[in-house]
Amino acid sequence: MAQQKHAHKRSLGFYSADPSQHTLLEDTQGLATGALVAALGFYFLNQVGLLTGGTAGVAFLLHYAFGISFGLLFFLVNLPFYYLSFRRLGWAFSFKTFIAIGLVSLITEVEQKFLLIQYLHPGWAALMGGLLLGYGLLALYRHRASLGGVGILAIYIQERFGIQAGLIQLAFDLCVMVCAFFVVSPQIVGWSFVGAVVLNIFLAINHRSDRYIVVR
């Protein structure tokens, strides 16, 4: 009985005694740190003109083409996907995702005032940017949040038309990379592809339900 009371007390405090649940404090630090790390990954990519897949890739393309703030574009590009998110994945996931995207958009705007890199090789930017985005997304995934709407759209198309979500995501990312040839140099597109590969390999290895308890 005493053990149950102690576990209940912990669940109302700093961390949850139930490994399948998170407290408000745990979710708050998870979203905050995930957004910080992901924003740093975007900073590395942006420093040398690289891009990535998903809605972030679209935001980068518009940013490089028209000089509009990446943070603002990243926030706006994701807005149309929230309706599908609420319908398919529920309000909790959608709300956390909205907060995470808002944080990343804000941090990417202010972090350049606190961080200045004088020289950065595109290859190193691709490697570090991909890894940092992977770590950031992994933290957000563990707290039932995300950073983009393309995955939500892919799930919807899979359920509606039977096309695999992974193929939809891949096709969208390939379209982003093809469009990039009209905005940046082929070399930049090549390094961007390297960064995308690093990101996806990292997530494929580390985001596995058979290696840790997934929060449902």
Rank of each mutant, 00 (worst) to 15 (best):
F70T: 09
R142A: 05
V58E: 05
L89I: 05
F42K: 01
A92R: 14
L84M: 13
L132N: 06
G90V: 11
L12H: 04
G54K: 11
G71L: 14
H63M: 08
L137N: 01
S94K: 06
T52R: 08
V37H: 08
L31G: 05
G102Q: 09
Y64R: 09
Y141K: 02
D18V: 03
S69D: 14
K96W: 00
A145C: 08
V110T: 06
E111A: 01
G148I: 12
A35C: 10
L138V: 06
P80Y: 08
G149W: 14
A126N: 13
L31I: 15
Q29A: 01
L133M: 15
L45N: 12
R88C: 00
F74L: 07
F75E: 03
T55E: 04
F95A: 09
G71T: 12
I68R: 07
L61E: 03
L24R: 13
S11Y: 01
S69R: 08
A126W: 14
A65F: 09
L147D: 10
Y135H: 12
A32I: 13
L147F: 15
F66I: 06
G130K: 11
A65D: 05
Q112K: 08
G130I: 11
R87H: 04
S11C: 04
Y141A: 01
A39T: 08
G41L: 00
G41V: 00
L73G: 02
Q112N: 05
Q112P: 01
P19M: 12
L138G: 06
Y141W: 12
K113G: 00
A92H: 12
A38K: 02
A38Y: 15
L25S: 07
S94R: 08
R87Y: 03
P80R: 09
Y141C: 01
L72Q: 09
I99T: 02
R144D: 03
Y119M: 05
P19A: 14
Y141S: 00
Y82W: 07
A17G: 15
G49I: 03
A17V: 02
G136M: 13
D27T: 12
W91S: 13
R142M: 07
G54M: 10
L147H: 14
L138P: 05
Q29K: 08
A39K: 04
P19G: 12
G149P: 14
G49Q: 02
F66A: 10
L31N: 08
L36C: 14
G49A: 02
E26I: 00
N78G: 09
K96Q: 02
D27P: 01
L40V: 03
L89E: 13
H22P: 01
L106C: 06
L140W: 15
K96T: 00
A59C: 08
F81L: 03
G130H: 11
M128W: 13
T97G: 02
Y82L: 09
F44Y: 10
Q47Y: 00
F60I: 06
A56Q: 12
L45M: 12
D18C: 05
G130Q: 10
I68P: 03
L115V: 10
G90T: 10
G57W: 09
L132A: 13
V48P: 08
I99L: 06
W124R: 07
F95Q: 04
E26C: 01
Q29T: 07
S85Y: 10
Y141P: 01
D18Y: 04
F60Y: 15
P122G: 12
A92F: 13
F70Y: 14
S105H: 09
T55S: 12
Y43K: 07
I107N: 03
S69Q: 11
D27L: 04
E109K: 03
L147Y: 15
R87V: 02
L62S: 04
A65M: 11
A125I: 07
